[in-house]
Amino acid sequence: MRPGWRNIIPHIVLSVFSLAILLPLIWVVRVSLTDKLTAYKIPPEIGHVGIENYIEIFSTYPFERWFFNSLIVALVSTAIALPLATAMAYAFARFNTGGAFLRLGVLASQMLPPIILVLPLFTLFFSTGLMQTRMGLILAHLTISLPFLAWMLVSFFEGDSASLEEAARIDGATRWQAFIKIAVPVAAPGILAAGLLGFILSWNEFLFALVLSGADSQTLPIGLASMETHAGVEIAPLAAATVVSLLPVFALLPFLRKYLIKGLSLGALK
């Protein structure tokens, strides 16, 4: 054991950083539970505590529609991206498809500011009738998640996975069987983690949704941004809406962590 005082300093530093991250969240939760008046008080008061704001967001705003849109867009775009990204990553890892050039190209697409993609997509969707539809938004989100997930998954198909497939091929499997029955299950934790990340990426995406969605296809981030009345931003209901929209992400985080770690350590079986 190291002497106690040497442990204290890192803990103080970590506590400060943790607070920097946690305080805004705690503040949002507190505001979401107060009434509209107390929400603006500085210094903050505890005052009234209740769930009126949560009721209001569902009664006054089309909150459930935003939530539903976000859910559909995130789920479907992830469901499309995941198998494609898996196949891409496999091709990169096993056959070095396109060489370093294509790999870099995929990464480079992530380096473009999203705003550069938005305008071409806008014209494209406008002429194909995809404008303001959920399908359009799903396609737009694929431009973000597909390269990202593929890039992330490559490492899960490198290393030991190749020799396992060779063993399967010797055991009598075709290339496809070796991929489906060995490579994919072995990479499953990584694929799950990638899927969760893809879901969160789409769930939080703002810019594409702002430009490409319409009244019927608005997602949560756009909905939250639109919660502005003639009297200005009503911060208490907005806080409540923020809390609800954060819930799925928080629900997914423990799984993300678990699968990422499991995925990274599974390859190390020796």
């Binding site: 396992l164 063993a167 010797i170």
Partner: peptide
Amino acid sequence: VDPADRDIAIVFQNYALYPH
């Protein structure tokens, strides 16, 4: 001939057991 059809078995240095 595909390895699957050669009817040969290989034991690998790292054993290559299917971990799942």
